[in-house]
């Protein structure tokens, strides 16, 4: 019975999806030529836009940097409140529930709300990234706090360490690698996700991509796309290199 359900549920889901997806073979066959035409018009990339492009990328980077910074500050406090070891159940349970709800709201939706609230530009982007990233980072920080093992900290107390010394030499060394790793990971996500914020008017390079594609300036869109790919690859390489150090 349960084995049958194991096959019937995913099988049914696939059939249901196929039935309503409006997949026409003709459209797929014709796509190749149109895609080639599209890509053809992107070559050669128009490098004259580099100045605008750098301004847009710088703005995206700024959104990611400040959004991460503010999320770190908020998460330090909320992380402590969401920790089972530091906070009573009456506090950490509701705080964790709120964080889960925050995580469930897509960044682009938050950005649209923020644009409505504070107007266009990088500010709504920064606020949206801060809000969205805090949902994840505060949860990670709480877990880092809860994973600190108590025995070594008790040993320091036994040796005469003050409360501040126990935090500095017992708790922080156990938490720090996890906190740094999670923060760098979140920064990379923030950078990737804020690339598209410009589409809803929340600042950054996304605005340029949208403008060039909508106005059929594919050579310019190509330049920006290549720059974005380069930025993401670099940030991923830096992230990977740093992750290895925080073990």
């Amino acid at each position: 019975m349960r084995r049958a359900a194991l096959w019937l549920v995913p099988g049914g889901a696939v059939l249901w999806a196929l039935a309503g997806a409006d997949i026409e073979a003709a459209r797929i066959i014709g796509a190749g030529a149109r895609l080639a035409d599209f890509l053809g018009r992107m070559v050669p990339p128009d490098l004259s836009v580099w100045r605008d492009m750098m301004t847009g990328l710088a703005e995206t980077l700024r959104i990611a940097v400040l959004g991460t910074l503010f999320a770190v500050v908020l998460s330090a406090g909320l992380g402590a409140l969401a920790s089972e070891t530091l906070a009573p159940a009456a506090v950490w349970r509701p705080v964790r529930a709120v964080l889960a709800v925050i995580r469930a709201i897509p960044l682009i939706l938050v950005a649209m709300l923020m644009v409505g609230a504070v107007g266009l530009g990088p500010l709504p982007g920064i606020l949206a990234v801060t809000f969205h990233a805090t949902g994840m980072l505060a949860k990670f920080y709480a877990e880092a706090i809860d994973n600190v093992s108590a025995a070594p900290v008790a040993a320091l107390e036994s040796a005469g360490a003050t409360r501040a010394q126990r935090l500095r030499f017992g708790v922080w060394p156990q938490m720090a690698p996890v906190v740094l790793r999670d923060t760098v990971f979140r920064f990379e996500l923030n950078l990737r996700e804020s690339l598209i914020l410009g589409i809803v008017g929340a600042g950054g390079i996304g605005l340029h991509v949208q403008t060039y594609v909508r106005s059929f300036q594919y050579e310019k869109a190509a330049t920006v796309t290549l720059a974005i790919i380069a930025l993401v690859l670099v940030s991923e390489a830096v992230n990977t290199a740093l992750q290895r150090r925080f073990s």
């Binding site: 070594p152 008790a154 040993a155 107390e157 036994s158 040796a159 005469g160 017992g170 060394p173 156990q174």
Partner: peptide
Amino acid sequence: HRADVGFVFQDFALI
């Protein structure tokens, strides 16, 4: 007082 009493822990309790 805690500084004057040394303790060797069974599970070592190292960082």
